[in-house]
Simulated scan of single mutants.
Amino acid sequence: MTFQPTRAIVTGSDSGIGKATAVALAAAGMDVGVTWHSDEEGARDTAREVEALGRRAVVRRLDTSDIPACGEVIDELAAKLGGLDVFVNNAGTGDNAPFLDLTLDQWRHTVSVDLEGAFVCLQRAARHMVGGDGGRLIAITSVHEHQPRVGSAAYDAAKHGLGGLMKTIALELGREGITVNSVAPGEIATPMTGQEDEDPRATDRPGVPLGRPGDAREIAAVVAFLASPAASYVTGASYAVDGGMLQMGPQAGSHIESDDWRQA
C-alpha cells in the first residue's frame, strides 16, 4: 500500500457532509481544496478547521451548473495544492416535485448540477491523477442512487446516473491505480435536510433500524476510509450509510397504514 494521499478536494464543503469530510481528510493528513456555492463564510469556517489541524486549505467558489467552467475550478485547486490524490464530489441539489408537475427547468437544473457538473469535475480531477501514484475518486450520491422516492424524479434520475457513472469510471481507471467509489447517505442531520447540524440522536425515526438520522461525521468517516491506503482494493462499490433504511423495503411496505407516503 504505497499510496499516501496528501492533497484532496471536497466540493460543497461549506457545510454538512462536505464540511465534515474536509475536516476528516485534514485529520488524516491531507491539504484540502474547499469549495462553496452560496455560503462563502461557511467555506472559510471549514478552512479554519482544516488549518487548525495543521493542514493547508485553499478556498474557491464552484458552481457545478456552470458547465464546463466548473472544471476550471478543479484545475485551479489542483494546481494550488501541487497535485491531487483524492477528489470527493459532494456538491449537489434537488428539486422536489411530483413527476406530473416537474418543470423542464427544474429537471435540467437538478440533472445539470448532480450529474453533468459531477461528470465534468470528476473527469478533470481524474486527469490530474492519471500517470501518477494512483488516486481516489469518491462521489456522495444518496440512498436514492439505489431506491426511488416519491416527488424526486429528477434527483433520483441524476443520482442513479451518477452511481452508474462511477461504476464505469472504476472499470476504466483501475489500470491507473485509481479507485472509484460512491457513498450513499440516508437522512443526515445537515442544513440541506433542515436540521442545521443538530445532534441526530435526539430525533426519533421509527422507520430506520437504528432509530435516528445520521450525523455528517458518520458519512465523512466512510469517505475517509475510502480515501485511505487501507481501501486500496475497493473500487466500483457504493456504500449505503443509512442506518439500515434500504433494508426496510418489504418490511416498511407491509406496515404502512395510510397513503401519507404518496405525498412529495
Rank of each mutant, 00 (worst) to 15 (best):
P98T: 07
V241A: 09
D95N: 15
G177D: 10
G12T: 04
L137D: 11
G29H: 01
A252Y: 11
P148A: 11
A47C: 03
R217A: 14
E198N: 07
L210P: 00
L137N: 04
M1W: 06
M1K: 08
P191A: 13
I169S: 12
S142K: 00
F87H: 05
D197L: 06
V223C: 12
G92C: 07
A154K: 03
E176N: 12
M192Y: 13
G82E: 13
L115I: 05
A28P: 02
G83T: 04
W107Q: 14
M245E: 10
G54D: 14
V86R: 00
G135Q: 06
R61Q: 09
C121D: 09
L246R: 00
L62N: 01
G253T: 10
E116D: 15
I9Q: 01
R124A: 15
S112C: 07
S228H: 03
I140H: 01
G94W: 06
D156G: 13
V58D: 05
L210A: 09
W36I: 04
D31I: 02
E257K: 13
L122T: 07
I138S: 08
L84N: 05
M1V: 15
H37M: 03
E49K: 01
C70A: 09
A240K: 00
A189S: 13
G92H: 01
D95C: 11
A153K: 00
T11L: 01
N96W: 13
A170F: 15
H37F: 08
S38W: 04
D199K: 00
G117M: 01
V208T: 10
V59I: 09
R262D: 08
L165M: 15
D101E: 14
P250Y: 03
P98E: 12
V113I: 11
D105A: 15
S13E: 07
E76F: 04
P250S: 12
V222F: 09
V130C: 10
V223Q: 08
V23A: 05
P5L: 04
Q4G: 08
V10K: 00
N89M: 11
A126G: 14
T141I: 07
T103I: 07
H146G: 08
D105C: 13
G134N: 09
R108Y: 13
A237S: 15
R60S: 08
D260S: 11
L173G: 08
